[in-house]
């Protein structure tokens, strides 16, 4: 079970250019942390470092007492780009990570069915990705990530390219899935509303080089519904966060 992810004075640099410095952050099990900031602040880079896809220059990233070295299925990422394998049917995409983990076929089938149901795609199990809408493909990507029972789900602006309606539906579904599985997530977004709606805390990154500028506790508790976004409290907080970023 996920206990905590601890980042201690993490520094990331490409050559001589420091992208991120002095990143100290602890994510508790079951928390959803949204990373937000102007473009170029290094929020995706930080997520990639947690995924093990980008090396850190100094400091440490520790998940449940073991240091992060390279990518592994305990930290799965859902990407902004379309990362669903187009040559595999929906079902086979979700099964991919389970095959890598050498889970027996019967167990694989059970998990695939469970995750298909979780993202409401049971009817599309045998379709190819090209036959799905962009929003449906995002759901496949999430189901594929959930299938390997990761300690953390890393979301890299997954809904950035979707229309507003689809985005809201997927946000609600994401919250529901996270609650059911008690998932822990780092969620990168540039959308303040999205960060407020999904996050238990919001980490605001500043630029040049990237650093943690603010950490905001989001006071809305669990069981959030889409109506929350229309509330005055939500909109006021949204304004305050917006001022912090700009």
């Amino acid at each position: 079970m996920m206990k905590e992810l601890r980042l201690e004075s993490v520094q990331i640099a490409y050559g001589a250019k420091t992208v991120l410095e002095k990143i100290d952050l602890t994510v508790q099990g079951g928390e959803i942390i949204c990373l937000i900031g102007a473009s170029g602040c290094g929020k995706s880079t930080l997520l990639n470092a947690v995924a093990g896809l980008v090396p850190i220059r100094s400091g440490s990233i520790v998940l449940n007492d073991s240091p992060v070295v390279g990518p592994a299925a305990d930290r799965v990422m859902v990407f902004q780009d379309d990362a669903v394998f187009p040559w595999m049917k929906v079902r086979d995409n979700i099964e991919f990570g389970l095959k890598v983990k050498r889970i027996p076929p019967a167990e694989r089938q059970r998990i695939v069915e469970e995750k298909l149901a979780a993202v409401e795609l049971t009817h599309a199990a045998n379709l190819y990705p090209r036959e799905l809408s962009g929003g449906m493909r995002k759901r496949v990507d999430l189901a594929r990530a959930l299938a390997v029972s990761p300690q953390m789900i890393l979301m890299d602006e997954p809904y950035g390219a979707l229309d507003a309606m689809t985005k809201e539906r997927l946000q609600v579904q994401f919250l529901k899935v996270c609650e059911e599985t008690n998932a822990t997530s780092l969620f990168v977004t540039h959308d303040i509303e999205e960060a407020l709606f999904l996050g238990d805390r919001i980490v605001v990154l500043g630029r040049n080089p990237g650093h943690i500028a603010h950490i905001i506790n989001v006071p809305f508790g669990d069981n959030r519904s889409i109506e929350l976004k229309r509330s005055a409290e939500f909109q006021q907080l949204r304004g305050e966060v917006s001022d912090l970023i700009h």
Partner: peptide, 12 residues
């Protein structure tokens, strides 16, 4: 590259 990154994070 995103397909390869997806494979990597899934443990491949």
């Amino acid at each position: 590259a995103v397909y390869i990154r997806a494979g990597l994070v899934l443990g491949a």
